[in-house]
């Protein structure tokens, strides 16, 4: 019996890349440019963030539309405990935000001091990161819209 153990190097890796496709990819590229895109359904309503298929019927969707970076809060929760990986190192509101011109909602954080500053229906605006890479977190968060 050999008293020398055989060994070989092993590196765990994922030797493949994924493409985000024509719809999600276009949306993420838009974020890099500071633009929010949605996609039209057959009935003219708009899904944002856009999906390749109608969330209800499953029909393929292709017509992208440019929206704004403002909207209103459809629902929200106060996330009072700071948790790993989340967008903030302080308590924040997690919200479903309906972008103006869209008929569905985007999940994101809203940066306010406390739950008393949140309400359903409140107007919000995206706060963009200065360095963007085509990622949902190119929007740092949303914040209450300041009306001039």
């Amino acid at each position: 019996m050999a008293d020398e153990l055989l060994s070989a190097p092993m590196t765990i890796e994922y030797p493949f890349t994924r493409t985000t496709g024509p719809v999600i990819g276009a949306f993420l590229t838009g974020l890099r440019e500071g633009v929010v895109l949605g996609i039209k359904r057959a009935d003219g309503s708009v899904v944002c963030p856009p999906t390749e298929y109608d969330p209800e019927t499953g029909d393929a969707l292709t017509e992208m539309v440019e929206l704004t970076d403002t909207g209103h809060v459809m629902s929200w929760t106060w996330s009072g405990e700071v948790r790993e990986h989340q967008p903030f190192d302080r308590p924040y509101a997690l919200a479903l935000i309906q972008i103006d011109g869209a008929d569905t909602a985007m999940l994101h954080g809203v940066d306010v001091d406390g739950p008393e500053a949140m309400s359903t229906g409140m107007r919000v605006k995206a706060r963009w990161r200065s360095e963007r890479e085509g990622h949902i977190r190119d929007i740092a968060c949303f914040e209450p819209e300041v009306t001039p």
């Binding site: 929200w76 929760t77 996330s79 948790r83 990986h85 989340q86 997690l94 999940l107 954080g109 949902i136």
Partner: peptide
Amino acid sequence: LWPDAFAIGGL
């Protein structure tokens, strides 16, 4: 965004 399950339920 790593939203936790309690917050998702809260929505």
